[in-house]
Design a protein around this nucleic acid. Structure first.
Lengths: 220, 220
DNA sequence: TTTAACTGATGATTTATCTCATTAACCTTC
DNA sequence: GAAGGTTAATGAGATAAATCATCAGTTAAA
């Protein structure tokens, strides 16, 4: 990794950067491998260099809710590393992914002495919080079509930047991202297909009417 | 306010503290007054010195979801001030409340030059994020009794630190905290009363069986 | 290569919760 | 102190979504 490869490192001095990199190691995960697991002790700061990472949490009823897929240039597990001793959620690789693990103390030392860097982290954490607040509203207030449209839109806009894409998740995993059951999710997808809002071919989805998807996402 | 009154200021030097305080002002809000409103421009860092502040967000359908009640010693609106130009949610006073408004640039200047302070903010923000993630799981996976028990437990443990308390919100406001409708909330409260889990007298609630409340909260 | 497990799809049924409607109690203010 | 507004409570009916069950197609394992 070069220092200028990701925006977040650009506030670091060459020395800070070198010190952090030296106290780090890059780990490659294969599809579906766990990166860290809820209820284990949190230790390292983890940064996605390549691939996609699924961030999810298991409720008391063992049901899973997936918060997001984090892509390159973002941290995973920050909330737990900074706000708790124990991981409060899990993360796993979606496809092959390279994660850099930074030594906890070295990372904090740099955060403490570099105001611009810590401010960037504060902003990253804040945007993450705003994202969660939005998701909270969705879960509390939207009904099925709105939730499913949101997931489709999420892949289209945040992950693939295209109206046509192949989703690297099973239907059940998608339903966990929507906050519903796999049956309900599948059913709603089928309805979207019948209503010619999307084309569907296995894991390939093509949005035929972005307008309707947006309306469904907005109005619930 | 004295510097040692709240934990968050203890990492500040006397100079930093004085500079920030000089560039701040304390505003008293009466019950139900808006402190900041969703969709307005965010400007100041706001800190609760006294009272309770309701943090809530209005969805596209105009329905309100209340995230939490923030008490003395905590910031409100941090997510928006740091992560967005525009407030993504609202806050209003629950009873009389004193809020200190810090000048944006002065506050950031201190954050940037004081590593311990910025680290404290990072931790505060992280805990806030973990709280939201928990709430997200609740909204996605719990049904009514679990959500209502959660609200009762929240008041008991986080706000009043007692099994008996008088809630400063209407039933409708409580339902927005639970993420349901006022009718459903009232109905569930009544059921709890019939089942002798709580005593109910207007806004006074007394938990008769903390054990059952906890079970309901945990298992859904 | 046969069996077993997983995934996707769909129907039928049940259940939870929302919506609508009504009433009573309590404030507020004119 | 009467009228209007807000809040709390509850019932009946409508509706959305979960659950349960089945089956076909696919992938993985024995």
């Amino acid at each position: 990794m070069e220092q200028d490869e990701y925006r977040i490192w650009q506030t670091l001095t060459e020395q800070d950067w070198m010190e952090m990199i030296r106290a780090s190691n890059l780990v490659r995960f294969e599809n579906r491998e766990t990166i860290f697991r809820q209820d284990t002790r949190s230790s390292h700061f983890m940064f996605v260099e390549q691939g996609l990472v699924k961030v999810y949490k298991t409720g008391k009823s063992k049901k899973i809710l997936t918060l997001k897929l984090e892509g390159p240039g973002h941290f995973v597990g920050l909330l737990s590393v900074l706000g708790s001793e124990i991981h409060q959620y899990s993360a796993s690789a979606v496809g092959p992914a390279s994660i850099r693990f930074f030594d906890h103390d070295t990372f904090l030392k740099v955060v403490m002495r570099n105001g611009n860097f810590s401010l960037d982290l504060l902003r990253e954490l804040s945007r993450h919080g705003l994202f969660m607040f939005d998701k909270l509203i969705s879960q509390a207030q939207k009904q099925l079509p709105g939730k499913v449209a949101e997931v489709i839109l999420y892949f289209s806009e945040n992950i693939f930047h295209s109206h046509e894409f192949e989703i690297p998740l099973t239907r059940e995993e998608m339903s966990q991202l929507a906050g519903t059951t796999k049956e309900s999710f599948i059913r709603t997808l089928s309805e979207f297909r019948h209503d010619k809002i999307i084309d569907l071919d296995g894991k390939k989805i093509s949005i035929r009417s972005m307008k309707i998807i947006r309306i469904l996402n907005d109005l619930g």
